[in-house]
Measured scan of single mutants.
Amino acid sequence: YDEVAAQGEVVRKLKAEKSPKAKINEAVECLLSLKAQYKEKTGKEYIPGQPP
């Protein structure tokens, strides 16, 4: 859960800094992968601010 939240912060920071699109896309792919792992382990969708 904490990893997903941390990666979400990374994506937000990159977007706020107007980073190159390729770098943002890479961070988003990582975030989506973490969300998929979270769902696989818990059986639930990741919802920000609602730990399992």
Rank of each mutant, 00 (worst) to 15 (best):
V4H: 00
Q50T: 10
L14Q: 00
V28N: 11
C30P: 04
V10K: 14
V11G: 05
E26M: 08
Q7C: 00
K41P: 01
S33K: 15
E26G: 03
A27G: 03
A36N: 11
L32P: 03
D2T: 15
K13C: 01
G43L: 05
E40M: 08
E29D: 12
Y1F: 15
L31Y: 14
Y46L: 04
K44R: 00
G49H: 13
K44C: 00
K35F: 00
P52S: 00
R12H: 03
A22P: 10
R12D: 04
C30T: 13
G49M: 10
S19Y: 04
A6R: 14
C30K: 15
E40L: 07
G49L: 10
P51G: 08
A16T: 10
Y46F: 07
K13A: 01
A6I: 10
P20E: 13
Q7R: 00
T42F: 14
N25Q: 10
K39T: 05
N25S: 10
L31R: 05
P51S: 08
P48G: 10
K18L: 06
K15T: 04
P20W: 01
A6T: 15
S33A: 13
E26V: 05
Y46R: 04
N25G: 08
V4I: 08
P48M: 09
E26H: 07
K18S: 09
G8P: 05
K35S: 05
V10E: 09
I24E: 08
E29W: 00
K39L: 09
S33N: 15
L34Y: 05
A5Y: 14
Y46A: 05
A22T: 10
V11C: 02
N25R: 13
A6E: 13
K21C: 11
V28T: 13
K18G: 12
V28E: 12
E17Y: 03
E9I: 05
E17D: 07
Y46T: 03
Y46H: 08
T42V: 07
E29F: 02
A22W: 07
R12Q: 13
D2E: 10
G49N: 14
E17M: 15
C30R: 14
A5K: 13
A36T: 11
K41T: 12
V28S: 08
L32I: 10
S33Q: 14
A27H: 01
S19V: 15
Q7L: 01
L34N: 08
A5S: 09
L31V: 02
N25C: 03
E26A: 11
A5M: 07
L31T: 05
V4D: 01
E9K: 07
E26S: 08
K18W: 00
Q7V: 00
D2C: 13
D2K: 15
N25F: 06
L32E: 14
P20I: 06
P51H: 00
K41H: 11
A27N: 03
P51A: 08
E45T: 08
E29A: 12
G43E: 06
L34W: 00
K15G: 07
D2N: 15
E9Q: 09
K44V: 03
S19P: 08
A22L: 09
K41V: 12
